[in-house]
Design a binder for these strands. Structure first.
Lengths: 208, 208, 208, 208
DNA sequence: TATGAATGAGCCTTCATTCAT
DNA sequence: CATGAATGAAGGCTCATTCAT
């Protein structure tokens, strides 16, 4: 029971932190503000988390988890090209639907880069591996190198797309950019696939 | 002569700020730290710049200028695809050679997004237009839409590449990523150019 | 118990502020000086009071209260003239016995005039009404207009007497001044009481 | 010529200081603000006056002079009572017509009390003597003690009237207060005159 | 001489954190 | 266990004054 309360507190604080960072940035995310947003006394924050950094770390981990679990809702069968297209669109759709998380993640990534470089690198690796495993389902079994390249490019595109989206929160702009980026990536994926030995077996035309 | 000294101070402070932000982040860039890095008393900072925000703004402007003037060293003749490839590689080469500026710019962009949204958007627009004008020299005169799309994708790729580079400062990794990204963009550029009239026919063929 | 400590702190700070203002003036009453006088760290001042202005406001209110509760020690029966005489002497005696409070009140009044005009006017009104209610006990029930006039004149005389007392802290001088002022006011009070119906007949035009 | 310029500067600065103090209070009267109001470089202030206190002192002196020279425009013949009435009304009329000077003088008096007590006392004495000499023209030559008492009461009343005027800048209120105060003072003056050895020669009854 | 440039001292405030109950 | 109270350290900024030309 007691444990439960403490765990609830933990999650309240993490959720509050996500919201506060999204609204005020990491710099504006003071302990007082977070505690207030979580509806708990300031001292409780340090009762549950040893320090502010520890809280931020927990938030960062939570964010990564939530993205990993929510994002790749329904992978698909298809060529590497198809999967690349689908996954990039899906990821961006998720971010567009969760702007708070998107912004917080971006801010926290910068923070982690400075305070917990290992974590930041780790997060990148996790994202990369998640992406790669999604792509690995490509039907004409794709070459490892091609898989890796596409996965990396996808992460790069996601980051870049988010970056420019934050500047001008225009859904149409974003949609157009995502469309171009997806086509570009898909196109490059099929090119990479083509140049590898196991080519041309593609069964399905991609998407309806 | 008198004026000169003041102007020098200004630039010293701006340079010091760039360095401090690169090392400690915007959050760690305190006025005291900046003043110390510039080798001048704290009060002098406020003599030259009315407020810290004014200083950061000046730094941001300086950064944009310096990137604009340094980066497009040698534009080129060639197809849209060639130019896209060249410009992306050139831009990334510049950033790779000026990591301090790259990091500071990235941090300040986030800062500007929150404190001077107009400036941030403006900076993006400037980057976009610079890129577009570089691409406009493409020999088989490129379609306006294609030009715009490639320019936007280039900015997106640059941001994304920088992002992942900051995490793992591995020159080889970066080189490989830049290589893939450039090819991908070039390939997409030539696809767009080719299907100009029939752009909307979308993905599948994608290359002749 | 916990609450008690905080309340004590509050009062300590208020008392310290009164003392510091009396010695150094409002201008010299810095937060550091006040905290030191109260024997507590600077940060504690801002824990108890959100800002310096809030503290000064609290001091101002305290001052008004303390004067109101201490001053009219023993009202009396008698004519309006008698009461006016008694009250003026009593008020000045209180101030003479509490020079620190007198000076601080005077300084803070000027401060309030600029920063919290409403408060300043309110304080004046309170003083006025307190005075008027003291005078209202006059035996031959006094005319409302006469009551008001005497009350206002009393406040005016008190302020004027304090002003000149601050310049030359000579008890004898003050005593003599208070004596004259009291007689003058008492005399005017009886004149007003007597001529109640025909007050407006006045003396001589005195001005063209 | 050079001397002239410097003298002009001096006076500009003094005038600017009066205005600035009236608007922002002594606390808000910073050297920068004063210099700006005077339309001269900040450094010039310290070129003309050794320190800010010296400037404030000059302002204080100027104020006293200007009050002395402007106020008693036209003394009059008459009894002590008449003169008291006239002079009090005249003084208050002057202040009402010059609110800037009135406020500045009040603020500076408080300042002088703390920084140049002698000057403050001196100013009081000057005001006192000016008042006394004005009253000395009373026709039935007045007793020295009476003269002194009335002069002191007049100063006290003036200060008190100004004080309450500053709180509520209501011309009607002020006029009514001045009217009451003048009558009270005049009445007391005739009473004092009557009780002195040279009595009963009083031309006018003035009391029953 | 006159003034743009420069600065040491200090101000108010906020922060993450710890203490004491 | 939970939290109101407390605080050392630091942050951005302003001030009267002086320096250097």
């Amino acid at each position: 029971m007691l444990r439960v309360r403490a765990e609830v507190r933990r999650q309240d604080l993490v959720a509050a932190t996500v919201a506060v960072i999204a609204e005020h940035g990491v710099k504006g995310a003071t302990t007082r503000r977070i505690a207030e947003a979580a509806g708990c006394p300031l001292a409780s924050l340090h009762y549950v988390f040893h320090s502010k950094d520890e809280l931020l770390l927990a938030v960062y981990e939570t964010l990564i988890d939530s993205i990993r679990s929510d994002s790749p809702e329904a992978p698909e069968h298809g060529t590497l090209s198809d999967l690349a297209d689908f996954n990039l669109r899906a990821a961006m759709a998720w971010f567009a639907a969760n702007p708070t998380y998107a912004k917080t993640q971006s801010e926290l990534y910068t923070w982690a880069l400075r305070h917990q470089p290992d974590m930041a690198i780790g997060a990148l690796r996790i994202a990369l591996e998640g992406t790669r495993s999604n792509l690995a389902a490509a039907e004409p079994r794709a070459d490892a190198k091609a898989l890796d390249a596409i996965a990396r490019l996808m992460i790069i595109l996601i980051d870049g797309l988010l970056f420019s989206w934050f500047a001008q929160e225009d859904p149409k702009r974003l949609a157009a950019d995502v469309d171009h980026a997806s086509r570009m990536l898909a196109s490059y994926a099929s090119a990479l696939s083509a140049s590898s030995p196991t080519v041309k077996t593609a069964r399905k035309p991609a998407r309806k």
